[in-house]
Design a protein around this nucleic acid. Structure first.
Lengths: 156, 156
DNA sequence: TTTCTTCTAACAATCGTTGTCAATTGGAAA
DNA sequence: TTTCCAATTGACAACGATTGTTAGAAGAAA
């Protein structure tokens, strides 16, 4: 994750304006690094400092950052998209109870995956496929939720 | 994938009624096996035979099947959910140009993944995570689209 | 057939996200 | 510093995908 100052440079370099709203969004992003926030979560944080900022502006800025490759856009199952300030090659672990997300580094290279494909793809592809990205999402129950689950289940 | 008759049995076994609408949805599912249809695609097929069936009924039936574990519900990036009649452990390859989806069998066992996690998960999980499922989505360009891409790009 | 329960279809609502557009504002050039 | 214009903003509504609500229709069991 970059600092807020680096994000400002990125925007300037693209000829985009650095408005107070955007700076506030940058701050919210930097302070939430690692938590994989939704656009709405970022917005909630931004609004604490600038109540007039619209959710649309947050989406727009996050999409701009995503286009620049500075944050990545996660589609983890259903629900809102989440934004990840970690743009290194990595995978995600999602707890299906508390919905928290963690980054993990499983040794899954693009080349390894690509080497597995040709023999399996149907003929109309000529057995060829040019891999550009791959997402591994591991779902399950985190330790904390596993500890809670018996009591939670009992009280429901 | 099961036959239409097997789906009927599943429904009966759950105490659910087997209506003409549902039978028609089963037929559409069976005939589309392998194409990872969206709910709307199924609906389009169903409506050819029974114009009065609503999209809601299709969603409901697909969700019922999904709950029974007879079809699986794919969240492949943005856009509509897709339903997969293949419920064996497998992964997906998606062409980002034509949006087609293929099943592949990459040797990625749950145990292998789980063995990679403990050392990476933060302390508040106690380093524990109980994996229940994992989805690998590989994105890129299929052979057919790679062949087309130059001419397509040229004409746009 | 009767009765009971489930299912259907129309409709509207919901959620997450994006388009429209007039008014505002950043920031480079003068 | 002032000026100017393109970029940005926020209010609002629209959008696509999916689900809730409802009254009426149609299965299934007796």
């Amino acid at each position: 994750m970059q600092s807020s100052g680096q994000l400002i440079e990125h925007f300037r370099a693209q000829g985009l304006k650095v408005t107070p709203q955007r700076q506030c969004i940058f701050e919210a992003l930097v302070s939430s690094a690692g938590s994989h926030p939704t656009a709405e979560a970022i917005w909630a944080e931004v609004v604490r400092h600038m109540p007039a900022v619209s959710l649309k502006t947050v989406y727009q800025t996050l999409n701009d950052l995503s286009t620049m490759g500075v944050v990545s856009h996660l589609a983890i199952g259903t629900g809102s998209a989440r934004f990840d300030t970690n743009v290194d090659r990595h995978q995600h672990v999602v707890c299906t109870r508390c919905n928290r997300v963690w980054d993990v580094y499983v040794d899954l290279t693009e080349e390894w995956i690509e080497s597995k494909l040709p023999s399996q793809l149907p003929e109309d592809l000529g057995g060829r496929f040019l891999v550009s990205s791959s997402d591994l999402v591991v779902r399950g129950l985190c330790g904390a939720c596993a500890d809670d689950s018996s009591s939670v289940d009992a009280t429901v």
